[in-house]
Design a protein around this nucleic acid. Sequence first.
DNA 1: TCTATCGTTGACATCCATGTCAAGGTCCAG
DNA 2: CTGGACCTTGACATGGATGTCAACGATAGA
Lengths: 120, 120
Amino acid sequence: MRIGELARRTDTAPRLLRYYETQGLILPVREANGYRDYDERLVDRVLQIRGLLDAGLPTRIIKQILPCLDAPRTIHFTDATPEMLETLETETERMTRRIQCLTRNRDAIREYLDVVKALA
Amino acid sequence: MRIGELARRTDTAPRLLRYYETQGLILPVREANGYRDYDERLVDRVLQIRGLLDAGLPTRIIKQILPCLDAPRTIHFTDATPEMLETLETETERMTRRIQCLTRNRDAIREYLDVVKALA
DNA sequence: TCTATCGTTGACATCCATGTCAAGGTCCAG
DNA sequence: CTGGACCTTGACATGGATGTCAACGATAGA
């Protein structure tokens, strides 16, 4: 599909799809006329990227995370350098902390809202 | 305590503590000489702020979240306008989505790492 | 008292994700 | 073949969190 369709389906500005490409997050193939041609599976990938960006991860990290996601069974050993694995370990820990922080605060807000509602 | 100590204890640059203040996230009192004087409880608050920032929330939202956190029982009705409650509802939903996204991806990375380790 | 350390404000710079716009090429419907 | 919708690249702008620096005042220890 072309960039416009992907943009609609992922609710993401074409500008950003091109940006993600420069950051090495997605790599569309080109049509004969130079237009980008996106694989169907990139829809999910883009949504994943957006989710991670929204959760506070920088593209630099997302780029390292993605390869080990689209490989459910097909592990890419190519990139599995020790430093890389180290980075992933560190990153999962950060993500766990983020999850805890978000959960704690969300629950507190929920409780607050429930109390306020109960008094309404 | 003064800004330096708080900075050390929260691992946060003094510059940022002043920035958070301009954003209305913390409100230290002043000593006679103009130095900021931070309450002990601000240590936790700053850590909370940092966690939320790291999780992708903007200071604008954090500012609205904080009041209903330090009020376990003491609900602040002052700010509890309908729009405000609406914002909080929306925000908890976003946080839930963020949590799901982070959890899903973290688990996928974990699985990947486990497989790689098992083959090592 | 001198000096090092810490505090203050304010300005300017930087990084990153994003918006916007210009100048031009492609493609299709009328 | 023309007009409009879509694509290309590239440049420039913006907003938010953060770094850095300058000029100055406060504090405390030798």
